[in-house]
């Protein structure tokens, strides 16, 4: 049993925060389900993306923040591209992740969070992804030093990764982009219009 008068009132500040930072309106969602129909990761979620939108509509924001749905989203943006109401669904989920991060709510998927952190730090440092250092740091962070170690000879033989970082033409511009989106690896607020096609 959900007490709507309570959830709506109590959830309102956090929902407003997510709406403000994502630039999206969850009330615009029609619940048509097209986001879920196109989602490639929904099978791993505890509830599909359209349900996440509805939960925000009725104020179940804590449940959203603590959910695997918010954490496992791949940010592939297909839902945002196909939303008939032009809602940036992925942006909403991305924002929910960030809000959850800040609230320290996301320890059930610690490795995921660390992976994301190391990924973005790596891109900021090198301008593009340097897999070798990224994986090393990830393994340190997760304290699983030997994680996937057996794959190393194979990867090296296939020349899939390089020992030295890649060269980027304009690293300063790259860093400026990161600075502009809050100066750290947190996701940026999406533009008002959402991600169109």
């Amino acid at each position: 049993m959900i007490n709507l008068s309570r959830t709506v009132t109590e959830g309102a500040p956090l929902v407003a925060e997510i709406e403000r930072r994502s630039g999206q309106r969850v009330s615009a969602c029609l619940q048509c389900g097209r986001c879920t129909s196109t989602c490639v990761a929904a099978h791993a979620f505890d509830f599909p993306p359209h349900r996440l939108m509805h939960m925000l509509q009725i104020g179940l924001v804590q449940e959203v923040l603590a959910s695997r749905t918010a954490q496992l989203c791949l940010d592939c943006m297909t839902c945002s591209m196909r939303c008939p109401m032009k809602i940036d669904v992925a942006g909403v989920i991305e924002t929910a992740k960030a809000v959850a991060d800040e609230a320290g709510l996301r320890d059930t998927e610690r490795d995921l969070r660390l992976f994301r952190r190391e990924f973005l730090r790596n891109v900021r440092r090198h301008g593009r992804l340097h897999e070798t250092s990224m994986l090393l740091r990830y393994n340190f962070a997760t304290r699983k030093l030997t994680n996937d170690i057996s794959l190393v000879p194979l990867i090296l033989r296939k020349r899939k990764v390089h020992l030295f970082p890649p060269k980027v033409k304009n690293l300063r511009q790259m860093r400026r982009i990161f600075r502009e989106i809050n100066g750290d690896a947190r996701p940026a607020p999406e533009p008002e219009t959402g991600a169109g096609e």
Partner: peptide, 13 residues
Amino acid sequence: TDTLAGEQVEIEA
């Protein structure tokens, strides 16, 4: 009921 959430709901109106 909220059939989209699949849950019973109540409101103090």
